[in-house]
Design a protein around this nucleic acid. Structure first.
Lengths: 202, 202
DNA sequence: ATTTGATATTAACAGTGTTAAGCTAACAGA
DNA sequence: TCTGTTAGCTTAACACTGTTAATATCAAAT
């Protein structure tokens, strides 16, 4: 292995180390609680060193979000391959997102409620990203249900939005009304899914 | 009118002026975009003067939130007095919140998605506030529907949470997925209410 | 041995929330 | 009228923030 290769590898490893430390701080302390100086101290380098590996604070956040969406995408594909029934697949996929949010509110908040990391709808669709891929796979799952005649004839995009809206809602409530859904968030989530399903079915 | 009274009145007027300017900045620039120095410049006083009228930045936000909730409460009571049918009242009340959020995303975000202004569920219930009053009136509206036998037999608190969850969801999606619901937010909101209603009815 | 280039650092700028101390002007009582 | 007090406001400062420019370090290549 050549020297330049070795260096490139070390650089990559260092980038990873920065990213992992950054994610920890972002999740624990939130977007505002995160600071470049805090991260620098954690990794034992000067604050400006970070700028050699990431453009700025938001670039760090973007990289972290992409890794999360890669994770979501993998899970959606797993569910899809395991469960052959489209309705069952949608149920599981939908519950996966809500459950992730309820179990990891800080992560969910960071990814979805911090900044418009991926810009407008158009900007999200324009350039390739894990977030974009995740969106399309989820849309396909919904489309499969429609194609199987299991849902009311509502535009697929409207249904997708409706579902993500509800997921965001459960988690937002859980995050911003401190302890509001405590001991009850699961019940509210299940009630909501139950109600939604009754309302969406043909 | 005595001198002390006059002074008190002036003080009150000044407080109002600060609050109005603060709300403008909070809404336009968001919680983070707001700064004491910005506000000071706007009202043409030094930053520290503000601290003679408000404990700190969050105290300003709290005062602004309370005024909003006073507004909500008045509107809920108005709807209630106008529409005698409990189901119609709930529909209107629910749509009022969603609509407020879609029409005034910055305000909604400031009030509901910025900080846990009113603390935990317990803390909200403990001390009297406009937010607390608003919550209870909305709960009463839901309870009226249940009492009239118009809803499935689900615990009233769960239904209230479910509805606020959906309201938060629509608005959150609208805010954080920039332009995501654009031109479609109304349709998604109506679809959601329609779906929810089908699912909630007996 | 010298040059080059990558990597890391120090110093600085402009901004943040908040506090402590001090100034000014108007009032009250003698 | 002089003095003491107090309300109202300001200046200065502290400890932070993200980010940039200039500089130092040090290993590899010539």
């Amino acid at each position: 292995m050549g020297v330049t290769e070795k260096r490139a590898k070390h650089k990559e490893a260092f980038r990873r180390e920065i990213l992992d430390s950054a994610r920890e701080i972002f999740i624990n302390d939130g977007y505002d609680g995160f600071s470049m100086r805090k991260l620098a101290e954690k990794i034992d380098y000067s604050p400006t060193t970070i700028y050699l590996y990431f453009r700025n604070k938001d670039d760090l956040l973007f990289a972290i979000c992409e890794e999360f969406f890669a994770h979501f995408l993998a899970e959606l594909n797993r569910i899809r391959s395991v469960s052959p029934d489209p309705v069952e697949t949608l149920h599981q996929a939908f519950f996966y997102f809500i459950n992730f949010g309820l179990k990891n509110p800080d992560q969910y908040k960071l990814i979805f409620f911090t900044k418009s990391v991926y810009g407008t709808r158009e900007e999200l669709f324009e350039k390739e990203s894990m977030a974009r891929n995740t969106y399309f796979v989820f849309k396909e799952i919904v489309q499969d249900c429609i194609s199987a005649g299991k849902l009311r004839e509502i535009e697929v995009d409207v249904i997708v939005d409706t579902l993500t809206v509800v997921s965001h809602g459960v988690v937002a409530k859980n995050i911003y009304c401190a302890n509001f859904l405590k001991e009850r968030s699961d019940r509210v989530a299940h009630t909501l899914i139950d109600v939604l399903w009754r309302g969406l079915q043909k």
